[in-house]
Design a protein around this nucleic acid. Structure first.
Lengths: 222, 222
DNA sequence: TTTTGTGAATTGCTTCACAGCA
DNA sequence: TGCTGTGAAGCAATTCACAAAA
């Protein structure tokens, strides 16, 4: 029963981890794996993995486990990364610059094909993306054209917080359908446009909290 | 009842968002706020916010709401960011470089004070951190010394995936007590050391999934 | 009024445990 | 035997709804 009866968001998050682990196994020439092996590698229970996959159909072979290549293909299809997709980025500051040079998501089916900024001094600047493809920085007002030209669906937002909301609106108006936001605030745009948040400080605070409560509950103080 | 009977991790994640929103309110000279107002700004229910805060005691004033300054101080205390804390970074590649220049977490109580790499060509290079403080890149083997000297608790890991596990071990051995990991893999180190994961590709895949299922469930196809 | 804090009810997620298949 | 897929059980998180306070 592969019905789409609302997939837990935690499940979707883990699918990416399964895919990532499977790619590693494939690189190591493993042909098959099991929910136990995946669980050990990712710090999850085998039952969790089987349940997650069960939302999307039957993937495994009792007594055998999962065929690595087969599961990779099916997970890519589920995540919508079976075809490469083009991505744009807005905000060519420090972080934006680092991400354009980052090869990490090229491996996973995403290609950065257009970069925007509203600083006149940057417009027209050329540089080579991680793929080697030359990219020219364009003004924000050119976004709609690029979205059409490259069939872009996803955008990465790396502008300062004060501008983020307005630029996010520009992105949506230009046709971007999902946003990966690095600015430290909650965006209020068309609710049909999913937004994923990456906030450095929030993550550091998680760690800080776990450290303080860990010491409050036992060890520390010699 | 402010007992520490296992705080839901989702609650802890949201505390950071509350703090962030409160800092914004303070900048706009708001003196008080309410669970409704915070909820609207962050896309959460008022009840959720009250429940989250209730784990840690009583913060609000019936009929009034929450005093912004007061709640900021108490949240900082809970998160362990009431005192500034020093942080190190390992891996001075593109991403590492961008993060050392990033001022975002300075505002939130974290200070980057030491940077490491194992590339001999980089060792000794000097640059100015976001604070303006000059930092010299050191070899990974110098970590333990820096941890002692600056009382460092948290480390940011931005080395390539192949080296990440080994470097994470070095960090833990050097005394780092929590790791913010940007390498796309699950780290297996001392389970007493909390790890927070930031994987770009995983986030893009979340968005990709939500796009494909959204179109599978209705709209699209003109 | 308004708004908090909180037990109770609900919803959602994870783990268990076993039937079925290789 | 080994392993998946899955209903049922158990646990966790969220929302509800209202008493108490300003």
């Amino acid at each position: 029963m592969a019905g789409s009866e609302s997939i837990p968001s935690a499940t979707v998050r883990r699918l990416s981890l399964y895919l990532r682990q499977l790619e590693t196994l494939k690189e190591n020439d493993r042909r098959t794996t099991s929910s136990r092996q995946l669980g050990d590698a990712l710090g999850l229970s085998p039952a969790q993995i089987r349940k997650d996959l069960a939302y999307f159909g039957q993937f495994g072979h009792p007594g055998i486990g999962y065929r690595v290549e087969e599961l990779i293909l099916r997970l890519r299809k589920i995540l919508g990364t079976d075809k490469r997709s083009n991505v744009l980025l807005v905000g060519f500051g420090n972080l934006g610059r680092a991400l354009t040079a980052y090869r990490g998501f090229n491996k996973r089916g995403f290609e950065l094909v257009a970069v925007f900024d509203n600083n006149p001094e940057l417009i027209g600047t050329q540089f080579n993306a991680a793929t080697g493809m030359p990219i020219t920085i364009q003004h924000n007002s050119q976004m709609a054209e690029a979205v059409r030209l490259y069939s872009i669906k996803l955008g990465i937002l790396t502008v300062p917080a004060e501008q983020a909301e307005a630029v996010a609106r520009q992105m949506v108006d230009a046709g971007v359908r999902g946003i990966l936001n690095f600015a430290p605030l909650t965006l209020h745009v068309d609710p049909a446009v999913p937004i994923s948040y990456m906030d450095l400080a929030v993550h550091l605070e998680q760690l800080s909290f776990r450290l303080s409560t860990a010491s409050a509950l036992g060890d520390e103080c010699p």
